[in-house]
Nucleic acid binder design. Structure first.
Lengths: 228, 228
DNA sequence: TCCAACATGATTGTCGACATTTTTGTTGTC
DNA sequence: GACAACAAAAATGTCGACAATCATGTTGGA
């Protein structure tokens, strides 16, 4: 999920992923303060690396850094939430166009292998793996599309989506179901662009519709602004 | 241009902006190696800060960092170029929607003041200022739209656009003309969303049409891949 | 002469210690 | 008792030195 290149998952990326997972599992709530020293102790790494990881997480929209004040788990507002899903639909559509135009038949098994892992984690009830793999499927599509730019954009949007989902979902976690992923693979195999676009659109709408984005609750991003 | 928040332009952001300007002015060509020590000497800062700046520039797509190998000015391919402009149109459209829906009349003067600076720099023949202000206008629109998310996305896309323009433009630098910006301001003042969207679309198409994106020249991103 | 292994130089990556800023707790005065 | 100024503690920000890694040039052998 957080690996920057194909093989080379930098050491800081590992911290990013663990934080991301903790957020997805609601162990870290939005607004929580992230002290550098504390994180360094937990992950048994130097504080410098924690800073590096926090900077990455900020650019991915997962944490907000206030200069000289510290890092906090971000709290995206409803407007940002809508924008994130809006652009995620755009990006995933573009990915699908490139993917169906350029994909090599020998890459299809990679998708199926991923799907198998998703189903397996789902059956085992392994929440952590399920969350990781669920986002990973979309990211794999981007990688197979061959565009590093689309991949990096999508990773950003997926991170934000995850955080938004934890904040605004109505019920328990919905499983970004493996079945919908399976249907997508079939469309890709058949190189059915229109079908794939329709499925992806529906898939993402399902996720968004599970959220309650009606409330205009202003979000405390900066403690100073929040108490005017 | 590179200021992260409103007032608080971090010290590393200054380095980012100077590198960005050098790239825009074609003083730094795509593929150029950026040695940390060298940059530290030129900018008279510590190497740690240079690393910080390079990391930011990488996430903005302006430089490519190869682990243990160094940083290079990025060389986006034609596919990435098309994607960047594609999404830039999407983002700017979204900005315009939010802007016209929410803008306060008292903010219009800020736009006009910016336009005045653009015209002034243009008349003086101050290329550096012209480049900076030209991108700054679009970024100002995003800031006035009130969405930090859209702002950060757009800053990223503008950086990449600049680099792409220097790589693929046919003739000399086209001035992302102040006149088209002026027309946009009029539409905003009149809260004419459809008009504004049309103008923005045309404005961005003008920039893209000045480029020669026909050649499928593969780009050397990684020296290893390039010589297969 | 060509190739491989090694040694050297240069460059990036990492860490710990110190300086700065912010926050919190205390004291003294009105 | 409330408020302001000050002092102590804690957290963040910065820097320089050292370690690890990669590129280049050299040497020895076939």
């Amino acid at each position: 999920m957080y690996q920057r290149k194909e093989v080379n998952a930098g050491p800081a990326a590992e911290i990013c992923e663990r934080v991301w997972l903790s957020i997805a599992e609601r162990k870290l709530r939005p607004g929580t303060r992230l002290k550098e020293e504390q994180l360094a102790e937990v992950f048994e790494v130097s504080r410098a690396r924690v800073r590096q990881a926090l900077a990455m997480l900020e650019s991915d929209g997962l944490v907000t850094i206030l200069p000289n004040r510290g890092a906090f788990v971000a709290e995206p507002g409803v407007d940002e939430a809508r924008d994130v899903f809006h652009f995620r639909r755009q990006v995933e559509a573009r990915v699908m166009e490139r993917l169906i135009a350029t994909i090599d038949a020998k890459d299809i098994p990679r998708l199926e292998a991923h799907l198998t892992m998703e189903r397996d984690a789902d059956l085992r009830g392994d929440t952590t793996a399920t969350i990781r793999l669920s986002g990973g499927f979309h990211l794999l599509l981007a990688e197979l599309s061959g565009s590093a730019f689309l991949s990096s954009m999508l990773r950003d949007l997926i991170s934000r989506s995850t955080l938004i989902t934890t904040m605004y979902r109505r019920h328990v976690h919905h499983n970004c179901g493996p079945d919908e992923h399976a249907a997508l693979i079939e469309s890709i195999r058949a190189r059915d662009l229109n079908g794939a676009l329709r499925l992806m659109e529906a898939h993402l709408r399902h996720v968004e519709e599970e959220l309650d984005l009606t409330e205009g609750v202003p979000v405390l991003r900066d403690l100073r602004e929040a108490l005017t």
